[in-house]
Nucleic acid binder design. Structure first.
Length: 109
DNA sequence: CTTATGACTTTCA
DNA sequence: CTGAAAGCCATAA
């Protein structure tokens, strides 16, 4: 394949509809690596600035429905704000943010 | 070839 | 509830 694993991640994340979220493991599973959740996270970590405005990175969260971002440029707070603008219920708890995956988890068909 | 790393996940205490 | 440790896999050096 001419495109890297990262490119596939970006392409898949772009398919996440507005108002929905997806988990790293879920995306990794679709790409054929159920255990490659770290790759998804890393792919978004090195997300080029150009792709930054085309890839809805803020719709990707961890399995607990929390924001695990360690990126200083894009804090969890910023991500939570972006999700709220998309009508995603983000609950703030003790400095952490939580999302109801049973309602907002993206289900590819 | 070997190491190191990371926006994860699961399991155990 | 929190935290630590192991497993996981693509990419870089």
């Amino acid at each position: 394949m001419a495109y890297s694993y990262f490119q596939r991640v970006y392409g898949l994340v772009k398919r996440i509809p507005r108002g929905r979220v997806a988990t790293y493991g879920q995306i990794a599973g679709i790409l054929g690596s159920p255990r490659g959740a770290r790759m998804v996270g890393w792919a978004l970590h090195v997300l080029p600035k150009k792709e930054l405005r085309t890839v809805p990175w803020h719709r990707v969260i961890n399995r607990e429905g929390r924001i695990s971002t360690t990126c200083l440029e894009h804090t969890a707070r910023q991500q939570a704000e972006l999700l709220k603008k998309e009508r995603v219920a983000v609950t703030a708890v003790h400095g952490s943010y939580r999302i109801d995956l049973t309602k907002f988890l993206w289900k590819p068909f």
